[in-house]
Design a binder for these strands. Structure first.
Length: 851
RNA sequence: GCGAAAGUGGCGGAAUUGGCAGACGCACCAGACUUAGGAUCUGGCGGAGCAAUCCAUGGGGGUUCGAGUCCCCCCUUUCGCACCA
């Protein structure tokens, strides 16, 4: 025997040894070209932000993906398993302020450190296709896409109310505002500011993005629901109420905003409703406090103005508290009236704090009889409540508000008697004929605001010329490079605006003096298409070669945190459609199957710096080894659930790997003697162990095919090892032939390979195998061998378990019944009673119904 | 308020099709061994009971020969949405 030290499983020796060997073999994890003849498999995990440290959430995410990638390699697939860095973003600027390290330097050094962590963890990434989004060879294509989108009217500039985070000193997209606060600064209220911004016209694809969700059945329903909610389609009707001209000459006509369409803007109020069938029940019209018409009303009425200002203030407060839904309804009557275009009825015009200016037309018709909110409001202010819909087939009114669409119209003039659905259609037709309304689809989804007043992002490739206006940077001048030596501050707009060498350019059209756009792009632009770049990462002529992308896309399996369910995943789906319309790709969707893994929890809370419950991967690797840390993150719970990080659990996995190591090293010599030979008709202990082996193989193989309960895969391997260990004395005594030993140990190592790649590589070599275990075929389970020949069947009397009987595996119901009835316990329990019925489920159970 | 997921030993979890509840691991208890280690090995480990046996999957009903699993009502937790007209 070798000296004592070698008798211990020592990941600190094994893992660096293999890490070095793998690093020396760049082809190991490299994807092959389309001509490989193998089926392709693109497995992708979301790329990390290079903060400087991997955290346990990363370890978990990448352990899942790496296990899958390794399994697919062993199944003979051509696997693309790339990695990159979401490398632009504000933390680099904050670090620059704090440490006086330039963002680029800080970012690249973080990347180097995290790459070392990845390699130490033994992640099988093809670094040859690494993508780093902050480097010009990547972000130039952001600019190129921006220009293509500008040409197609998909990128445009407008002045609008935007979300401004005072902490970030930049604007945020709607998607980045959570409960009224910045997504990066939980306690920081987002302010509303008026700014000119660049937008991507994602709304042009709203319907398609919604429809596409139906086909994404490889996505979690939860994610699809979140996206549906976010897109927020609602189908309805826009209808004009006419403004009743009271107090003639008092000024409606003379006042107002001026440059809008005179007629429609001032004499009509356009409302959006999904229930035009209830319009005969409208007893008021409600305007958002910011509605243009309100300004016209208040201009001549300072008392009204004060009241409206109060409504605006209430709305603002509620919005900032992130609880717009809980706002206490307040309203104020304007004293004006509007005319219902269908029946000529005059209804009062109110201004209310629960009406949103930026949804629909910013005005509604209030139908208290058939809408909860309108009912509440009308009850509070004593407005009339009218029944216009009655449940189908009923003679008496339902209790109001009755909001169902399953009903017929009453009190609705010539439309009475129509079903809700028929009435909606009819009323829309009438509105169209009378030119006072039309069917309308409204989306909650807004265009994607991409301008950021920050330095560390992709410069927007536009030039402002005094003569020619906005001029795109010509393609041949790309990339517009970020200047390197600049002073980072967080005040007074974009840092780039203070770099004259950057700002001052000549206009590409007239050659005169001009200024560059100084805003940079939202970093979600980077992550919207990075996975295409992986397929052709070195291309300097195009973002990627469409033919190569077509081979790899769509991504077969994407794995990441559920926190990206809307932002990143909806932008990516949008971007893919834009690229499709540019002719770059043929797929509509980037991702075929999407998986959202659970969070890593410690002491009841998500691991985070602020909670002080962070466990460092480096620490875990140093103490237990990468294999143990990875395997624990798979063993603790199924991948879609949150896992509870328990250090004793990691130690337990580490002990288990130690048992595997000892078992295999101890019997490796015996196994090598049976190398390459198949076991002929095993019997006794060999049969028992091989049966367990083949059952384990079948179970793990099945799980990789979809269920992904890797926790039970690890448990199954543990059971197998427990069985082998229990037979250790017999194995040592040579009771199991070498051929069987060979199959047992070799297959065990193969099964372990996706979960504990270092140990598997070490033991693979220990068994005398050459070449990477990744290239070895995944073991196949022999169903004949896996099948038990004798099974235990539970016997119940009246549904209660009495005993177990042993029968042959294929025993027919008669034989099972006979065995059950012959059992001693069964006989004593049923003595003196009548067996009324016997239920036999072959292979499962026997139940005697006894009286 | 609406929607989804979940609730099983001291803990993480298992039970894939309605068929032995608690696999596997942690913690704990007892023992063995010792080169005294973050070791290893053996056994035990839901509750009550000497035992036979009984009770037990958030609570209450139901369907069924049989329910952790299906149906109804309720409670709790997490997540998403929330005056979106």
């Amino acid at each position: 025997m070798a000296d004592e030290k070698e008798l211990r499983y020592d990941p600190a020796t094994i893992e660096p040894k293999w890490q070095k060997r793998w690093a020396a073999d760049p082809k190991l994890y490299a994807a092959e070209p389309a001509t490989s003849g193998k089926p392709k498999y693109y497995v992708l995990e979301m790329l990390p932000y290079p903060s400087g440290q991997l955290h346990m959430g990363h370890v978990r995410n990448y352990s899942i993906g790496d296990a899958l990638a390794r399994h697919m390699w062993m199944r003979g697939y051509n696997v693309l398993h790339p990695m990159g860095w979401d490398a632009f973003g504000l933390p680099a600027e904050n670090a620059a302020l704090k440490n006086h390290t330039p963002p680029r330097e800080w970012t690249l050094s973080n990347i180097a450190g995290m790459k070392r962590q990845f390699e130490r963890l033994g992640m099988g990434f093809d670094w040859a296709t690494e993508v780093t989004t902050c480097l010009p060879d990547y972000y130039r294509w952001n600019q190129w896409f921006f220009l293509r989108m500008y040409e197609r009217g998909l990128a445009y500039r407008k002045k609008s109310k935007v979300n401004w985070c005072p902490e970030c000193a930049t604007v945020l997209a709607n998607e980045q505002v959570i409960d009224g606060c910045c997504w990066r600064h939980e306690g920081t209220m987002v302010e509303q500011r008026d700014l000119v911004q660049w937008f991507f016209r994602i709304t042009a694809y709203a319907q398609e993005l919604l429809d596409g969700l139906d086909k994404l059945d490889g996505w979690p329903e939860k994610v699809r629901t979140m996206q549906r909610n976010w897109i927020g389609r609602s189908e309805g009707t826009e209808v004009d109420f006419f403004l009743e001209e009271i107090n003639q000459g008092s000024g409606i006509r003379e006042q107002g905003t001026g440059n809008r369409d005179q007629g429609s803007e001032k004499t009509r109020i356009r409302v959006f409703t999904t229930r035009v069938d209830t319009i005969f029940g409208a007893t008021s019209v409600q305007l958002a406090p910011q509605h243009a018409l309100v300004a016209a009303f208040t201009a001549a009425d300072s008392k009204l103005k004060a009241q409206v200002d109060e409504l605006i203030e209430q709305q603002k407060k509620a919005r900032e508290a992130g609880d717009l839904g809980a706002i206490e309804k307040h309203g104020v009557a304007t004293g004006r009236f509007a005319v219902n275009p269908y029946n000529g009825e005059h209804v009062p015009i109110w201004v209310a704090n629960y009406i949103l200016a930026d949804y629909g037309t910013g005005a509604i018709m209030s139908v208290p009889g058939h809408d909860e909110r309108d009912f509440e409001f009308a009850a509070k202010y004593g407005l009339p409540i009218v029944e216009v819909i009655r449940p189908a087939g009923q003679d008496s009114p339902a209790e109001l508000p009755f909001v169902s669409e399953d009903g017929v119209l009453v009190n609705s003039g010539e439309y009475s008697g129509l079903s809700c659905e028929a009435a909606q259609k009819k009323l829309q037709e009438v509105a169209a004929l009378g030119a006072f309304g039309e069917p309308k689809v409204t989306f909650r989804l807004k265009d994607w605001g991409v301008s950021r007043q920050r330095y560390w992002g992709t410069p927007i490739p536009m030039i402002h010329c005094e003569r020619d206006g906005i001029v795109p940077v010509p393609d041949e001048q790309l990339p517009v490079l970020l200047p390197e030596q600049i002073e980072i501050t967080q005040q007074g707009g974009s840092p780039l605006a203070r770099v004259p060498e950057f700002v001052n350019v000549t206009c590409p059209q007239c050659g005169g003096p001009a200024k560059r756009e100084t805003d940079t792009m939202d970093t979600f632009v980077d992550s919207s298409w990075y996975f295409y770049r992986y397929t052709d990462a070195k291309n300097s002529k195009a973002p990627f070669d469409p033919a190569i992308a077509q081979y790899w896309f769509p991504i077969d399996q994407y794995i990441g945190g559920v926190e990206h369910a809307i932002l990143h995943l909806i932008y990516s789906r949008f971007w893919t459609r834009v690229m499709r319309d540019l002719g770059l790709v043929k797929n509509d969707e980037p991702v075929f199957r999407q998986f959202s893994q659970g969070m890593v929890i410690k002491d009841g809370a998500k691991m985070s710096k602020s909670k002080g419950n962070v466990v460092s991967p480096d620490d875990m690797v140093a103490r237990f080894g990468a294999d143990s840390a990875r395997m624990y993150s798979l063993f603790a719970a199924p991948p879609d659930r949150d896992i509870d990080w328990q250090e004793d659990g990691v130690a337990g996995v580490s002990r288990f790997l130690g048992r595997v190591w000892r078992l295999v090293t101890k019997h490796a010599a015996a196994a090598r003697n049976g190398r390459g030979q198949s076991t002929a008709a095993p019997t006794g202990l060999s049969l028992k162990l091989l049966r367990k082996l083949h059952q384990t193989t079948a179970k793990i193989t099945l799980d990789f095919e979809g269920r992904w309960h890797f926790n039970t895969c690890v448990a199954a391997i543990m059971e197998l090892v427990n069985d082998l260990q229990a037979a250790d004395a017999q194995l040592t005594a040579g009771e199991v032939p070498a051929t069987a030993m060979w199959e047992l140990l070799r297959t065990l190592v193969l099964l372990l390979a996706p979960f504990a790649p270092y140990l598997a590589a070490e033991l693979w070599e220990e068994l005398g195998e050459e070449g990477a275990i990744l290239r070895a075929p995944w073991p196949e389970s022999d169903p004949g061998l896996a099948r038990e020949d004798e099974i235990e069947i539970p016997v119940q009397i009246n549904g209660k378990l009495i005993t177990l009987v042993r029968v042959a595996a294929g025993a027919d119901p008669k034989a099972i019944e006979a065995a059950a009835l012959a059992d001693e316990k069964v006989q004593s329990r049923s003595a003196g009673k009548t067996v009324v019925k016997v239920i036999v489920v072959p292979g499962r159970t026997v139940n005697l119904v006894v009286k």
